[in-house]
Design a protein around this nucleic acid. Structure first.
Lengths: 132, 132
DNA sequence: TGCAGTGTACTATGATTCGTAATACAGTTA
DNA sequence: TAACTGTATTACGAATCATAGTACACTGCA
């Protein structure tokens, strides 16, 4: 199901996130389909369950999947795919604007603050992933 | 000329960058005015010249200042002030886009990563920081 | 030419962060 | 209860970061 490059400079959990996103977006993994459990996948890939867990947590925070204690992790239905075109578009526009902003001397720090402010103002945001 | 908080969690060189940007934008430091030399300023602030150097390098990469080997570092003329309108505009556009992104379910975290990636790719931010 | 000023590059090092692992806790279902 | 699930806590080596030490290279002036 997965191929990972363990000796890559990219951390394993990031590779996992990318690969899974791809599978979800392309609907190889369908809505509400159950993902392999953290332990199963860990064993299969001969890495630590916690690494899978980190990838899953990341995917959940980006609402690609949802997890239920004791039951499993599942592909998020609809909403994401419905918006996927818009999302791609917005991301692209954002990239350009961010590049321009950085070029103009606005610092990444400044942008971070901006986002946090908007996040709390709009209230729509999901809280972010504080790595242990 | 400067006050720094050495025990702040913010690195010294960053504080320096911020403070100098402010002085340049508010035109306390005029165009083409020579900045204190790395050694002078280092001695005055009782920190290592290399820390000043890092701040100056950062400022130069964002074209707030320019440096000439053997002569000194100077405030960049014009360009930045010319950009100030652009900056306001870009920030405004960014606000709107970020709101939309968050609304679409893109997380703040994802945006952070995006920025970091662009920062390193474009080299817009703190670039040439290749330690050893 | 030499000296004293300037910026720059390289290396070292302690502190912090990062990626992963080990282990224990907690919910679900049969 | 047993055998699955996800989650939280802690530990630890590796990588990165912030700063320092030191040496190099250029400029301008006596």
């Amino acid at each position: 199901m997965f191929e990972l490059d363990v000796r890559s400079r990219k951390p394993i959990y990031e590779q996992l996130v990318e690969r899974l996103k791809e599978l979800i977006i392309t609907e190889v993994l369908k809505a509400n389909e159950q993902l392999p459990s953290v332990r199963m996948l860990a064993q299969q890939l001969t890495i630590n369950p916690n690494t899978i867990q980190k990838a899953y947590r990341e995917l959940e925070s980006q609402s690609y999947i949802y997890s239920i204690k004791g039951k499993g992790s599942f592909v998020s239905p609809a909403t994401l795919k419905q918006n996927s075109e818009k999302i791609v578009k917005v991301k692209h526009e954002l990239s350009k604007l961010i590049s321009e902003a950085l070029y103009l001397g606005i610092t990444a720090d400044e942008l971070f603050k901006m986002i946090k402010e908007i996040e709390t103002t709009v209230g729509g945001g999901i809280e972010s992933d504080q790595n242990q």
